[in-house]
């Protein structure tokens, strides 16, 4: 247990420092939220209509930012060899790496998402659901993203490849979460969309590490 908790501490610290960590991710997120009113036009009605969807899409893109280095650095400097040589299963180590990534970037984004949505003109009573979607969605993005990061190990343009692999896998959570949010905003039942989002996140957390571990083993040998 101390083994995995020390790995979690290391991964969170590394993700925090990786390419500026949460500050860059949050800055990107804030940048998108500020630029959109300038592009779409400042009429509050028009903005309010797209606010939640926009906050949601920006979240998906922001969580792509530091994914590229999730496994790449450990692969390049030999740390991944040593992580494999442990009684702890590699699948568990991969899950802990993604969790560290989520703590350092997903959690701050989940806190920022309701602020951005309200800032863009969404109704404040949407905030709890935006936050819940951002927590579940962020987990899904981190664990699905980890698969892309592990599969692109050793590729020369790893970041681009990660994005190409991961973006199609990001579409279901974006659709489910966006559906739940817009249903809630217009007073329709939203539970189904949220339940699907949570189910997708649970599946990503459960199955993602298996794919990541297989991809890491393949990249090493």
């Amino acid at each position: 247990m101390s083994r995995l908790s020390s790995l979690l501490g290391r991964e969170t610290a590394l993700a925090w420092g990786r390419g500026g960590g949460p500050l860059v991710t949050l800055g990107f997120y804030a940048g998108v939220a500020t630029l959109v009113p300038l592009a779409v036009g400042p009429e509050s009605q028009r903005l309010a209509a797209v606010a939640t969807g926009l906050a949601w899409v920006a979240l998906a893109l922001a969580s792509l930012l530091s994914l590229e280095r999730l496994f790449e650095r450990d692969f390049e400097d030999g740390a991944l060899d040593l992580i494999v040589l442990s009684p702890a299963p590699l699948e568990l180590a991969c899950a802990v790496k993604c969790l560290g990534q989520w703590i350092a970037t997903g959690a701050p984004l989940a806190l920022a998402a309701p602020v951005a949505a309200i800032g863009l003109g969404a109704s404040p009573n949407l905030a709890p659901l935006v936050f819940a979607c951002a927590v579940a969605g962020g987990l899904a993005f981190a664990f699905v993203g980890g698969i892309g990061a592990a599969l692109s190990l050793g590729a020369r343009r790893g970041g681009l490849l990660t994005a190409v692999i991961v973006l199609p896998l990001f579409t279901p959570p974006v659709i489910f979460g966006g559906g739940a949010l817009s249903a809630f905003a217009s007073g329709l039942p939203w539970q189904a969309g949220f339940a699907l989002l949570a189910a997708y996140a649970a599946a990503a957390v459960a199955l993602g590490p298996l794919a990541m571990a297989a991809a890491c083993r393949n990249a090493l040998s």
Partner: peptide, 25 residues
Amino acid sequence: LVGHQDGLKPARTAWEELRFWSLWS
């Protein structure tokens, strides 16, 4: 296994790295 690539992260302190790899091993 001790190889050419030692897996040590340049931006972390020596103690952080030694402590982590000892616990991990």
